[in-house]
Design a protein around this nucleic acid. Structure first.
Lengths: 237, 237
DNA sequence: TGAAACATAGTTGTCATACGAATTTGATGA
DNA sequence: TCATCAAATTCGTATGACAACTATGTTTCA
Protein backbone atom coordinates (compact mmCIF):
# COMPACT_ATOMS: atom_id res chain seq x y z
CA UNK A 1 0.00 0.00 0.00
CA UNK A 2 1.36 3.40 -0.93
CA UNK A 3 2.19 6.01 1.67
CA UNK A 4 -0.72 8.11 0.52
CA UNK A 5 -3.15 5.23 0.95
CA UNK A 6 -1.70 4.53 4.36
CA UNK A 7 -2.35 8.09 5.43
CA UNK A 8 -5.77 8.24 3.81
CA UNK A 9 -7.05 5.04 5.32
CA UNK A 10 -5.41 5.87 8.62
CA UNK A 11 -7.19 9.18 8.90
CA UNK A 12 -10.44 7.69 7.71
CA UNK A 13 -10.17 4.93 10.26
CA UNK A 14 -9.63 7.43 13.07
CA UNK A 15 -12.98 8.97 12.20
CA UNK A 16 -14.82 5.75 11.37
CA UNK A 17 -13.74 4.21 14.66
CA UNK A 18 -14.88 7.20 16.65
CA UNK A 19 -11.41 8.20 17.85
CA UNK A 20 -12.09 11.51 16.13
CA UNK A 21 -15.60 12.92 16.27
CA UNK A 22 -17.22 15.81 14.40
CA UNK A 23 -15.66 19.08 15.48
CA UNK A 24 -12.57 17.45 16.96
CA UNK A 25 -9.14 18.79 16.18
CA UNK A 26 -6.72 16.37 14.60
CA UNK A 27 -3.29 15.82 16.12
CA UNK A 28 -0.67 18.07 14.54
CA UNK A 29 0.78 17.06 11.22
CA UNK A 30 4.02 16.15 12.92
CA UNK A 31 2.31 13.79 15.32
CA UNK A 32 0.23 12.19 12.61
CA UNK A 33 3.34 11.62 10.51
CA UNK A 34 4.89 9.64 13.32
CA UNK A 35 1.68 7.80 14.14
CA UNK A 36 0.98 6.78 10.57
CA UNK A 37 4.59 6.39 9.50
CA UNK A 38 4.47 8.64 6.45
CA UNK A 39 6.14 11.87 5.45
CA UNK A 40 4.48 15.21 5.94
CA UNK A 41 3.93 15.63 2.22
CA UNK A 42 2.02 12.37 1.88
CA UNK A 43 0.00 13.13 4.98
CA UNK A 44 -0.96 16.54 3.69
CA UNK A 45 -2.08 15.05 0.38
CA UNK A 46 -4.37 12.69 2.28
CA UNK A 47 -5.72 15.54 4.38
CA UNK A 48 -6.44 17.52 1.24
CA UNK A 49 -8.36 14.65 -0.28
CA UNK A 50 -10.60 14.36 2.75
CA UNK A 51 -10.96 18.13 2.81
CA UNK A 52 -12.07 18.12 -0.82
CA UNK A 53 -14.72 15.58 0.11
CA UNK A 54 -15.96 17.71 2.97
CA UNK A 55 -14.72 15.49 5.78
CA UNK A 56 -11.91 17.69 7.11
CA UNK A 57 -11.38 21.42 7.40
CA UNK A 58 -7.96 22.97 7.86
CA UNK A 59 -7.28 26.34 9.48
CA UNK A 60 -3.91 27.94 8.92
CA UNK A 61 -1.95 28.20 12.13
CA UNK A 62 -4.59 26.36 14.14
CA UNK A 63 -4.98 22.80 12.92
CA UNK A 64 -7.21 20.45 10.97
CA UNK A 65 -10.68 19.62 12.24
CA UNK A 66 -13.25 16.96 11.51
CA UNK A 67 -16.25 18.58 9.86
CA UNK A 68 -19.75 18.21 11.24
CA UNK A 69 -20.19 15.32 8.79
CA UNK A 70 -23.60 16.48 7.68
CA UNK A 71 -24.95 14.64 4.67
CA UNK A 72 -25.73 17.98 3.04
CA UNK A 73 -22.11 19.10 3.28
CA UNK A 74 -20.72 15.92 1.79
CA UNK A 75 -23.15 16.16 -1.10
CA UNK A 76 -22.24 19.82 -1.49
CA UNK A 77 -18.64 18.86 -2.20
CA UNK A 78 -19.82 17.86 -5.65
CA UNK A 79 -20.44 21.48 -6.55
CA UNK A 80 -16.77 21.94 -7.45
CA UNK A 81 -17.01 19.32 -10.15
CA UNK A 82 -20.49 19.34 -11.70
CA UNK A 83 -19.44 22.51 -13.49
CA UNK A 84 -17.01 20.39 -15.49
CA UNK A 85 -19.55 17.89 -16.80
CA UNK A 86 -20.13 17.74 -20.55
CA UNK A 87 -23.67 18.26 -21.77
CA UNK A 88 -24.50 14.58 -21.83
CA UNK A 89 -23.87 14.48 -18.10
CA UNK A 90 -26.00 17.53 -17.50
CA UNK A 91 -28.93 15.73 -19.08
CA UNK A 92 -28.43 12.77 -16.80
CA UNK A 93 -28.53 15.10 -13.83
CA UNK A 94 -31.63 16.84 -15.12
CA UNK A 95 -33.39 13.51 -15.08
CA UNK A 96 -32.59 13.25 -11.40
CA UNK A 97 -34.07 16.69 -10.89
CA UNK A 98 -37.24 15.42 -12.49
CA UNK A 99 -37.69 13.13 -9.54
CA UNK A 100 -36.25 15.14 -6.71
CA UNK A 101 -37.77 18.56 -7.28
CA UNK A 102 -41.37 17.31 -7.48
CA UNK A 103 -40.73 15.36 -4.31
CA UNK A 104 -39.42 18.45 -2.56
CA UNK A 105 -42.40 20.47 -3.78
CA UNK A 106 -44.83 17.87 -2.47
CA UNK A 107 -43.18 17.84 0.94
CA UNK A 108 -43.08 21.60 1.00
CA UNK A 109 -46.80 21.84 0.20
CA UNK A 110 -47.53 19.91 3.35
CA UNK A 111 -45.32 22.04 5.58
CA UNK A 112 -45.22 25.57 4.21
CA UNK A 113 -46.60 28.48 6.26
CA UNK A 114 -48.33 31.67 5.17
CA UNK A 115 -45.29 33.89 5.67
CA UNK A 116 -43.13 31.81 3.39
CA UNK A 117 -45.82 31.73 0.75
CA UNK A 118 -45.88 35.50 0.85
CA UNK A 119 -42.10 35.67 0.59
CA UNK A 120 -42.10 33.39 -2.42
CA UNK A 121 -44.80 35.50 -4.05
CA UNK A 122 -42.59 38.54 -3.60
CA UNK A 123 -39.68 36.74 -5.22
CA UNK A 124 -41.81 35.89 -8.25
CA UNK A 125 -42.96 39.49 -8.48
CA UNK A 126 -39.35 40.55 -8.64
CA UNK A 127 -38.47 37.98 -11.26
CA UNK A 128 -41.34 38.99 -13.47
CA UNK A 129 -40.43 42.66 -13.13
CA UNK A 130 -36.75 42.19 -13.95
CA UNK A 131 -35.11 41.92 -17.33
CA UNK A 132 -31.62 41.35 -16.00
CA UNK A 133 -30.25 37.85 -16.44
CA UNK A 134 -28.26 37.96 -13.22
CA UNK A 135 -31.28 39.02 -11.18
CA UNK A 136 -33.40 36.36 -12.78
CA UNK A 137 -30.86 33.66 -12.10
CA UNK A 138 -30.35 34.69 -8.50
CA UNK A 139 -34.04 35.01 -7.68
CA UNK A 140 -34.90 31.78 -9.46
CA UNK A 141 -32.32 30.07 -7.32
CA UNK A 142 -33.73 31.64 -4.16
CA UNK A 143 -37.24 30.53 -5.09
CA UNK A 144 -36.32 26.91 -5.62
CA UNK A 145 -33.95 26.68 -2.68
CA UNK A 146 -36.59 28.07 -0.34
CA UNK A 147 -38.99 25.35 -1.44
CA UNK A 148 -36.35 22.68 -0.88
CA UNK A 149 -35.58 24.03 2.55
CA UNK A 150 -39.24 23.99 3.53
CA UNK A 151 -39.33 20.36 2.50
CA UNK A 152 -37.18 19.77 5.57
CA UNK A 153 -34.44 17.45 4.35
CA UNK A 154 -31.06 19.19 4.17
CA UNK A 155 -29.50 16.42 2.10
CA UNK A 156 -32.29 16.77 -0.43
CA UNK A 157 -31.82 20.53 -0.54
CA UNK A 158 -28.10 20.19 -1.05
CA UNK A 159 -28.52 17.60 -3.77
CA UNK A 160 -31.03 19.70 -5.66
CA UNK A 161 -28.74 22.69 -5.29
CA UNK A 162 -25.84 20.80 -6.79
CA UNK A 163 -27.91 19.45 -9.65
CA UNK A 164 -29.41 22.84 -10.42
CA UNK A 165 -26.08 24.66 -10.27
CA UNK A 166 -25.19 23.55 -13.74
CA UNK A 167 -28.20 24.42 -15.82
CA UNK A 168 -28.25 27.72 -13.96
CA UNK A 169 -24.96 28.65 -15.57
CA UNK A 170 -26.28 28.67 -19.11
CA UNK A 171 -27.64 31.69 -20.81
CA UNK A 172 -29.88 31.36 -23.84
CA UNK A 173 -28.17 33.39 -26.56
CA UNK A 174 -31.18 33.97 -28.80
CA UNK A 175 -33.27 36.89 -27.51
CA UNK A 176 -36.60 35.55 -28.74
CA UNK A 177 -35.91 32.15 -27.25
CA UNK A 178 -34.89 33.74 -23.97
CA UNK A 179 -38.13 35.71 -23.85
CA UNK A 180 -40.17 32.62 -24.55
CA UNK A 181 -38.29 30.67 -21.92
CA UNK A 182 -38.91 33.38 -19.34
CA UNK A 183 -42.60 33.44 -20.17
CA UNK A 184 -42.98 29.74 -19.57
CA UNK A 185 -40.66 29.84 -16.60
CA UNK A 186 -42.69 32.54 -14.90
CA UNK A 187 -45.90 30.62 -15.52
CA UNK A 188 -44.31 27.47 -14.14
CA UNK A 189 -43.23 29.25 -10.99
CA UNK A 190 -46.71 30.59 -10.43
CA UNK A 191 -48.17 27.12 -10.85
CA UNK A 192 -45.81 25.73 -8.26
CA UNK A 193 -46.64 28.51 -5.84
CA UNK A 194 -50.36 27.93 -6.34
CA UNK A 195 -49.87 24.31 -5.40
CA UNK A 196 -47.95 25.27 -2.30
CA UNK A 197 -50.44 27.95 -1.29
CA UNK A 198 -53.26 25.44 -1.64
CA UNK A 199 -51.31 22.98 0.51
CA UNK A 200 -51.83 20.56 -2.37
CA UNK A 201 -48.85 18.20 -2.69
CA UNK A 202 -50.09 16.66 -5.91
CA UNK A 203 -50.56 20.00 -7.62
CA UNK A 204 -47.24 21.34 -6.38
CA UNK A 205 -45.48 18.17 -7.43
CA UNK A 206 -47.02 18.17 -10.88
CA UNK A 207 -46.13 21.80 -11.40
CA UNK A 208 -42.55 21.20 -10.31
CA UNK A 209 -42.32 18.24 -12.62
CA UNK A 210 -43.52 20.28 -15.55
CA UNK A 211 -41.07 23.02 -14.66
CA UNK A 212 -38.11 20.67 -14.75
CA UNK A 213 -39.34 19.06 -17.94
CA UNK A 214 -39.34 22.47 -19.51
CA UNK A 215 -35.77 23.10 -18.40
CA UNK A 216 -34.81 19.77 -19.89
CA UNK A 217 -36.43 20.75 -23.15
CA UNK A 218 -34.35 23.88 -23.43
CA UNK A 219 -31.16 22.16 -22.44
CA UNK A 220 -31.73 19.53 -25.11
CA UNK A 221 -32.66 22.12 -27.67
CA UNK A 222 -29.41 23.98 -27.19
CA UNK A 223 -27.23 20.97 -26.66
CA UNK A 224 -26.36 20.67 -30.33
CA UNK A 225 -26.28 24.37 -31.07
CA UNK A 226 -24.49 27.42 -29.71
CA UNK A 227 -24.33 27.62 -25.99
CA UNK A 228 -22.57 30.09 -23.77
CA UNK A 229 -21.22 28.87 -20.47
CA UNK A 230 -21.24 31.53 -17.78
CA UNK A 231 -17.68 31.19 -16.53
CA UNK A 232 -16.73 28.33 -14.30
CA UNK A 233 -19.68 28.88 -11.96
CA UNK A 234 -17.43 28.69 -8.91
CA UNK A 235 -16.31 31.77 -7.12
CA UNK A 236 -12.78 31.90 -5.64
CA UNK A 237 -12.33 32.16 -1.89
CA UNK B 1 -5.03 33.70 -3.00
CA UNK B 2 -3.02 30.84 -1.55
CA UNK B 3 -0.71 28.73 -3.66
CA UNK B 4 -3.05 25.77 -3.30
CA UNK B 5 -6.01 27.78 -4.55
CA UNK B 6 -3.93 29.04 -7.44
CA UNK B 7 -3.10 25.51 -8.47
CA UNK B 8 -6.63 24.22 -7.89
CA UNK B 9 -8.35 26.93 -9.86
CA UNK B 10 -5.67 26.82 -12.50
CA UNK B 11 -6.18 23.13 -13.12
CA UNK B 12 -9.92 23.46 -12.98
CA UNK B 13 -9.81 26.29 -15.49
CA UNK B 14 -7.73 24.22 -17.89
CA UNK B 15 -10.53 21.66 -17.93
CA UNK B 16 -13.45 24.10 -17.84
CA UNK B 17 -12.01 26.07 -20.74
CA UNK B 18 -11.52 22.96 -22.82
CA UNK B 19 -7.74 23.16 -22.93
CA UNK B 20 -7.80 19.74 -21.34
CA UNK B 21 -10.48 17.29 -22.42
CA UNK B 22 -11.59 13.96 -20.94
CA UNK B 23 -8.82 11.41 -21.37
CA UNK B 24 -6.12 13.99 -21.98
CA UNK B 25 -2.81 13.77 -20.19
CA UNK B 26 -1.84 16.76 -18.09
CA UNK B 27 1.54 18.40 -18.57
CA UNK B 28 4.17 17.00 -16.21
CA UNK B 29 4.21 18.26 -12.66
CA UNK B 30 7.35 20.22 -13.41
CA UNK B 31 5.76 22.04 -16.31
CA UNK B 32 2.58 22.78 -14.38
CA UNK B 33 4.63 24.18 -11.51
CA UNK B 34 6.21 26.68 -13.86
CA UNK B 35 2.97 27.47 -15.66
CA UNK B 36 0.99 28.04 -12.48
CA UNK B 37 3.84 29.47 -10.44
CA UNK B 38 3.54 27.16 -7.45
CA UNK B 39 5.80 24.56 -5.88
CA UNK B 40 5.45 20.92 -6.67
CA UNK B 41 4.02 20.17 -3.24
CA UNK B 42 1.20 22.65 -3.59
CA UNK B 43 0.48 21.45 -7.10
CA UNK B 44 0.30 17.86 -5.98
CA UNK B 45 -2.13 18.76 -3.21
CA UNK B 46 -4.39 20.37 -5.80
CA UNK B 47 -4.13 17.35 -8.06
CA UNK B 48 -5.07 15.09 -5.15
CA UNK B 49 -8.15 17.14 -4.41
CA UNK B 50 -9.38 16.86 -7.96
CA UNK B 51 -8.51 13.17 -7.96
CA UNK B 52 -10.56 12.64 -4.80
CA UNK B 53 -13.50 14.26 -6.56
CA UNK B 54 -13.11 11.99 -9.56
CA UNK B 55 -11.89 14.63 -12.00
CA UNK B 56 -8.27 13.49 -12.35
CA UNK B 57 -6.51 10.14 -12.29
CA UNK B 58 -2.80 9.76 -11.68
CA UNK B 59 -0.67 6.86 -12.91
CA UNK B 60 2.74 6.36 -11.35
CA UNK B 61 5.50 6.94 -13.86
CA UNK B 62 3.11 7.95 -16.60
CA UNK B 63 1.28 11.12 -15.70
CA UNK B 64 -2.03 12.56 -14.55
CA UNK B 65 -5.07 12.31 -16.81
CA UNK B 66 -8.44 13.98 -16.99
CA UNK B 67 -11.11 11.42 -16.19
CA UNK B 68 -13.98 10.71 -18.53
CA UNK B 69 -16.01 13.19 -16.46
CA UNK B 70 -19.02 10.95 -16.32
CA UNK B 71 -21.70 12.10 -13.92
CA UNK B 72 -21.80 8.62 -12.44
CA UNK B 73 -18.11 8.73 -11.56
CA UNK B 74 -18.30 12.11 -9.88
CA UNK B 75 -21.25 10.96 -7.81
CA UNK B 76 -19.37 7.77 -6.99
CA UNK B 77 -16.63 9.79 -5.32
CA UNK B 78 -19.01 10.19 -2.40
CA UNK B 79 -18.68 6.52 -1.56
CA UNK B 80 -15.49 7.22 0.40
CA UNK B 81 -17.32 9.50 2.77
CA UNK B 82 -20.89 8.29 3.25
CA UNK B 83 -19.47 5.55 5.42
CA UNK B 84 -18.53 8.22 7.92
CA UNK B 85 -21.99 9.71 8.33
CA UNK B 86 -23.66 9.49 11.74
CA UNK B 87 -27.04 7.80 11.91
CA UNK B 88 -28.99 11.03 11.54
CA UNK B 89 -27.36 11.49 8.18
CA UNK B 90 -28.13 7.95 7.12
CA UNK B 91 -31.82 8.63 7.68
CA UNK B 92 -31.64 11.71 5.51
CA UNK B 93 -30.14 9.61 2.76
CA UNK B 94 -32.75 6.92 3.18
CA UNK B 95 -35.39 9.50 2.48
CA UNK B 96 -33.66 10.19 -0.83
CA UNK B 97 -33.76 6.49 -1.58
CA UNK B 98 -37.51 6.60 -1.02
CA UNK B 99 -37.78 8.77 -4.09
CA UNK B 100 -35.01 7.45 -6.28
CA UNK B 101 -35.46 3.71 -6.01
CA UNK B 102 -39.17 3.73 -6.91
CA UNK B 103 -38.29 5.92 -9.86
CA UNK B 104 -35.62 3.50 -11.00
CA UNK B 105 -38.01 0.58 -10.58
CA UNK B 106 -40.65 2.32 -12.68
CA UNK B 107 -38.19 3.05 -15.45
CA UNK B 108 -36.87 -0.48 -15.30
CA UNK B 109 -40.36 -1.94 -15.60
CA UNK B 110 -40.74 -0.20 -18.92
CA UNK B 111 -37.44 -1.41 -20.31
CA UNK B 112 -36.60 -4.76 -18.78
CA UNK B 113 -36.30 -7.87 -20.98
CA UNK B 114 -37.13 -11.47 -20.27
CA UNK B 115 -33.55 -12.59 -19.78
CA UNK B 116 -32.93 -10.02 -17.07
CA UNK B 117 -36.16 -10.95 -15.32
CA UNK B 118 -34.97 -14.52 -15.25
CA UNK B 119 -31.58 -13.49 -13.91
CA UNK B 120 -33.20 -11.48 -11.13
CA UNK B 121 -35.41 -14.42 -10.26
CA UNK B 122 -32.32 -16.55 -9.90
CA UNK B 123 -30.73 -13.99 -7.60
CA UNK B 124 -33.79 -14.04 -5.36
CA UNK B 125 -33.76 -17.81 -5.30
CA UNK B 126 -30.19 -17.67 -4.05
CA UNK B 127 -30.98 -15.07 -1.42
CA UNK B 128 -33.89 -17.07 -0.08
CA UNK B 129 -31.78 -20.20 0.04
CA UNK B 130 -28.87 -18.63 1.88
CA UNK B 131 -28.45 -17.99 5.58
CA UNK B 132 -25.10 -16.26 5.26
CA UNK B 133 -25.15 -12.55 5.91
CA UNK B 134 -22.37 -11.86 3.42
CA UNK B 135 -24.15 -13.73 0.63
CA UNK B 136 -27.38 -12.01 1.43
CA UNK B 137 -25.76 -8.57 1.37
CA UNK B 138 -23.93 -9.23 -1.88
CA UNK B 139 -26.92 -10.69 -3.71
CA UNK B 140 -29.25 -8.00 -2.41
CA UNK B 141 -26.85 -5.45 -3.81
CA UNK B 142 -26.71 -7.22 -7.16
CA UNK B 143 -30.51 -7.36 -7.34
CA UNK B 144 -31.00 -3.66 -6.76
CA UNK B 145 -28.09 -2.53 -8.89
CA UNK B 146 -29.34 -4.58 -11.81
CA UNK B 147 -32.68 -2.83 -11.59
CA UNK B 148 -31.00 0.57 -11.50
CA UNK B 149 -28.89 -0.30 -14.50
CA UNK B 150 -31.91 -1.39 -16.49
CA UNK B 151 -33.45 1.98 -15.70
CA UNK B 152 -30.83 3.37 -18.04
CA UNK B 153 -29.44 6.38 -16.21
CA UNK B 154 -25.90 5.83 -14.98
CA UNK B 155 -25.97 8.83 -12.69
CA UNK B 156 -29.11 7.48 -11.06
CA UNK B 157 -27.50 4.08 -10.63
CA UNK B 158 -24.40 5.58 -9.09
CA UNK B 159 -26.40 7.74 -6.73
CA UNK B 160 -28.53 4.86 -5.55
CA UNK B 161 -25.40 2.78 -5.10
CA UNK B 162 -23.83 5.45 -2.92
CA UNK B 163 -26.95 5.90 -0.85
CA UNK B 164 -27.44 2.18 -0.38
CA UNK B 165 -23.81 1.52 0.53
CA UNK B 166 -24.37 2.71 4.04
CA UNK B 167 -27.43 0.83 5.21
CA UNK B 168 -25.90 -2.23 3.58
CA UNK B 169 -23.09 -2.11 6.13
CA UNK B 170 -25.31 -2.72 9.13
CA UNK B 171 -26.04 -6.09 10.52
CA UNK B 172 -29.03 -6.66 12.74
CA UNK B 173 -27.61 -8.14 15.92
CA UNK B 174 -30.79 -9.78 17.24
CA UNK B 175 -31.35 -13.15 15.55
CA UNK B 176 -35.16 -13.03 15.72
CA UNK B 177 -35.20 -9.50 14.32
CA UNK B 178 -32.82 -10.50 11.57
CA UNK B 179 -35.06 -13.41 10.61
CA UNK B 180 -38.12 -11.18 10.54
CA UNK B 181 -36.29 -8.62 8.46
CA UNK B 182 -35.23 -11.23 5.95
CA UNK B 183 -38.78 -12.54 5.69
CA UNK B 184 -40.13 -9.13 4.82
CA UNK B 185 -37.15 -8.32 2.66
CA UNK B 186 -37.62 -11.46 0.57
CA UNK B 187 -41.31 -10.71 0.14
CA UNK B 188 -40.49 -7.14 -0.87
CA UNK B 189 -38.02 -8.35 -3.48
CA UNK B 190 -40.58 -10.69 -4.96
CA UNK B 191 -43.12 -7.90 -5.16
CA UNK B 192 -40.67 -5.69 -7.02
CA UNK B 193 -39.84 -8.48 -9.43
CA UNK B 194 -43.53 -9.16 -10.05
CA UNK B 195 -43.98 -5.53 -10.99
CA UNK B 196 -41.03 -5.69 -13.35
CA UNK B 197 -42.13 -8.96 -14.91
CA UNK B 198 -45.60 -7.50 -15.50
CA UNK B 199 -43.98 -4.45 -17.12
CA UNK B 200 -46.07 -2.47 -14.64
CA UNK B 201 -44.22 0.71 -13.62
CA UNK B 202 -46.76 1.62 -10.96
CA UNK B 203 -46.62 -1.77 -9.30
CA UNK B 204 -42.84 -1.91 -9.45
CA UNK B 205 -42.56 1.60 -8.11
CA UNK B 206 -44.94 0.95 -5.25
CA UNK B 207 -43.14 -2.24 -4.30
CA UNK B 208 -39.78 -0.47 -4.34
CA UNK B 209 -41.19 2.30 -2.22
CA UNK B 210 -42.46 -0.16 0.34
CA UNK B 211 -39.11 -1.92 0.33
CA UNK B 212 -37.21 1.26 1.15
CA UNK B 213 -39.76 2.23 3.77
CA UNK B 214 -39.13 -1.08 5.44
CA UNK B 215 -35.39 -0.47 5.44
CA UNK B 216 -36.03 2.90 6.98
CA UNK B 217 -38.13 1.32 9.68
CA UNK B 218 -35.34 -1.00 10.70
CA UNK B 219 -32.71 1.71 10.59
CA UNK B 220 -34.83 3.88 12.85
CA UNK B 221 -35.59 1.01 15.15
CA UNK B 222 -31.94 0.32 15.72
CA UNK B 223 -30.76 3.90 15.71
CA UNK B 224 -31.17 4.28 19.45
CA UNK B 225 -30.12 0.78 20.38
CA UNK B 226 -27.15 -1.42 19.74
CA UNK B 227 -25.87 -1.39 16.22
CA UNK B 228 -22.88 -3.05 14.70
CA UNK B 229 -21.11 -1.33 11.85
CA UNK B 230 -19.53 -3.76 9.44
CA UNK B 231 -16.09 -2.22 9.20
CA UNK B 232 -15.50 0.88 7.15
CA UNK B 233 -17.34 -0.53 4.14
CA UNK B 234 -14.56 0.54 1.82
CA UNK B 235 -12.14 -1.98 0.44
CA UNK B 236 -8.49 -0.89 0.00
CA UNK B 237 -6.96 -0.86 -3.45
C1' DT C 1 -8.31 46.54 38.11
C1' DG C 2 -8.86 46.36 33.31
C1' DA C 3 -7.44 46.33 28.86
C1' DA C 4 -4.33 46.80 25.27
C1' DA C 5 0.14 45.59 23.46
C1' DC C 6 3.61 42.37 23.18
C1' DA C 7 6.37 38.11 23.20
C1' DT C 8 6.36 33.27 22.63
C1' DA C 9 5.37 28.73 21.28
C1' DG C 10 2.82 25.85 18.35
C1' DT C 11 0.71 24.85 13.85
C1' DT C 12 -0.12 25.03 9.06
C1' DG C 13 1.58 26.93 4.31
C1' DT C 14 5.15 26.93 0.97
C1' DC C 15 9.37 26.02 -1.19
C1' DA C 16 13.67 23.54 -2.61
C1' DT C 17 16.27 19.41 -3.10
C1' DA C 18 17.15 14.70 -3.46
C1' DC C 19 16.35 10.10 -4.59
C1' DG C 20 13.36 5.81 -5.27
C1' DA C 21 9.78 3.51 -8.24
C1' DA C 22 7.19 2.92 -12.34
C1' DT C 23 6.49 3.81 -17.03
C1' DT C 24 7.69 5.13 -21.60
C1' DT C 25 10.72 5.51 -25.28
C1' DG C 26 14.30 4.50 -28.30
C1' DA C 27 18.32 1.98 -29.53
C1' DT C 28 20.30 -2.36 -30.20
C1' DG C 29 20.73 -6.79 -31.89
C1' DA C 30 19.25 -11.26 -33.41
C1' DT D 1 10.12 -7.98 -37.53
C1' DC D 2 10.45 -8.72 -32.97
C1' DA D 3 12.50 -9.08 -28.41
C1' DT D 4 15.60 -7.19 -25.18
C1' DC D 5 17.87 -3.81 -22.74
C1' DA D 6 19.30 0.95 -21.45
C1' DA D 7 18.14 5.58 -20.90
C1' DA D 8 15.04 9.27 -20.20
C1' DT D 9 10.80 10.81 -18.30
C1' DT D 10 7.43 10.99 -14.76
C1' DC D 11 5.28 10.31 -10.47
C1' DG D 12 6.08 8.81 -5.29
C1' DT D 13 8.27 9.84 -1.05
C1' DA D 14 11.22 11.84 2.33
C1' DT D 15 13.68 15.67 4.53
C1' DG D 16 14.86 20.23 5.86
C1' DA D 17 14.01 24.96 6.15
C1' DC D 18 11.48 29.06 6.67
C1' DA D 19 7.25 32.09 6.26
C1' DA D 20 2.48 32.97 7.81
C1' DC D 21 -0.92 32.54 11.04
C1' DT D 22 -3.05 31.42 15.55
C1' DA D 23 -3.44 30.82 20.37
C1' DT D 24 -1.81 31.77 24.84
C1' DG D 25 0.30 33.80 28.48
C1' DT D 26 2.85 38.00 29.99
C1' DT D 27 3.84 42.52 30.36
C1' DT D 28 2.81 47.20 30.34
C1' DC D 29 0.16 51.18 30.74
C1' DA D 30 -3.93 53.86 31.84
Amino acid sequence: MSALDTALHGLRALIADGALRPGDRLPSEGELCETLGVSRGSLREAIRMLAALGVLETRHGSGSYVSELRAADLIGSLSLTVGLLPMAGVLELTELRRVLEPHAAALAAARIDAATIETLGGVLDEIEASDDFEDHSRLDHAFHMTISEVAGNDALTSLIDVLRSRSRAYRIPDADDAAELKLHSDAGHRAILRGLAAADPVAASAAASAHVAQTEYWVRRYTETDIVAEGSAVEPD
